[in-house]
Measured scan of single mutants.
Amino acid sequence: SLEEAIRRAEEALRKGQTFEYAGIRVTTQEALEKFRKWAEKQK
């Protein structure tokens, strides 16, 4: 689910890792916010 993907992205960010979902790379807090906004639109 998208909620699960967001949780995994947050977890990866805390560990300093890269999270990738549907071709979207989350490597920074800013990218995480963009990913969250994108995920909201997918619902």
Rank of each mutant, 00 (worst) to 15 (best):
I24M: 11
K43M: 15
K43R: 08
E30I: 08
R7L: 13
K43I: 15
T18Q: 11
R7K: 13
Q17T: 10
L13S: 01
I24Q: 09
A5R: 03
T28F: 03
I24T: 04
E20T: 09
R7V: 10
Q29M: 14
G23V: 01
K43T: 13
K41W: 12
K15Y: 10
I6S: 02
K34H: 12
L2I: 10
E10D: 06
E20F: 08
R14S: 14
E33S: 07
E3H: 09
A31D: 15
T27Q: 11
R36K: 15
W38I: 02
E10F: 05
R8D: 13
I24H: 14
G16V: 02
E40H: 08
F19H: 02
A9M: 06
R25T: 14
G16Y: 03
Q29N: 09
I24F: 15
I6E: 02
R7Q: 12
Q42L: 12
V26S: 00
F35N: 00
R7E: 10
I6C: 04
A9E: 00
A31Q: 15
A39I: 14
G16R: 02
L13R: 02
A22F: 09
T28V: 03
T27L: 06
G23P: 01
Q29F: 14
A5D: 03
E30M: 08
A5F: 10
I6P: 01
E4V: 08
W38R: 01
T18Y: 15
F19Q: 01
A39F: 07
S1Y: 14
T27A: 14
E10I: 08
A9T: 01
Q17D: 12
A9L: 04
L13F: 09
S1Q: 13
K34P: 02
Q17E: 15
K37E: 15
A22E: 12
R25E: 12
F19Y: 10
I24G: 03
A9S: 02
E40K: 07
A12M: 08
K34A: 15
T27K: 07
R14F: 09
R14K: 14
A39D: 01
K41L: 15
R36H: 06
G23M: 03
F35H: 01
T18K: 09
A31M: 11
E40Y: 07
L2W: 15
T18V: 15
V26R: 00
E4A: 10
K34Q: 14
L2R: 03
E30A: 12
E11A: 09
R7W: 11
E30S: 10
Q17M: 12
F35I: 04
T27N: 13
S1E: 14
T18L: 12
E20N: 06
F35S: 00
A31V: 06
Q29T: 11
G16D: 05
F35V: 02
L2N: 02
R7A: 12
K41A: 15
E20P: 00
K41I: 13
R8S: 11
L2V: 08
G23N: 07
E33P: 00
R8C: 06
G23K: 02
E3P: 06
W38N: 01
V26Y: 08
E30V: 08
Y21I: 08
E20Y: 09
Y21R: 00
Y21E: 04
A22W: 07
F19L: 03
K43S: 13
E33D: 12
R7T: 09
I6F: 07
T18N: 10
L2S: 02
E4D: 13
E30Q: 10
A39Q: 03
I6A: 03
A31L: 08
F19K: 00
K41S: 15
R8P: 00
Q29D: 08
S1G: 11
Q17R: 06
I6Y: 06
A39L: 11
E30L: 09
L32T: 00
Q29H: 12
W38G: 01
R36L: 15
R14I: 11
R36P: 00
F35W: 06
A31R: 04
G23L: 02
R7I: 12
L13K: 01
A12N: 04
K43H: 11
R14A: 15
Q17N: 10
A12Y: 07
K43N: 13
W38T: 02
R8Y: 10
Y21K: 01
F35D: 00
A12D: 03
K41P: 03
K41V: 11
G23T: 04
E33Y: 05
A22Y: 09
A12F: 07
A39Y: 08
T28E: 04
E10Q: 07
E40I: 07
Y21T: 02
R36N: 03
K15D: 12
R25Y: 13
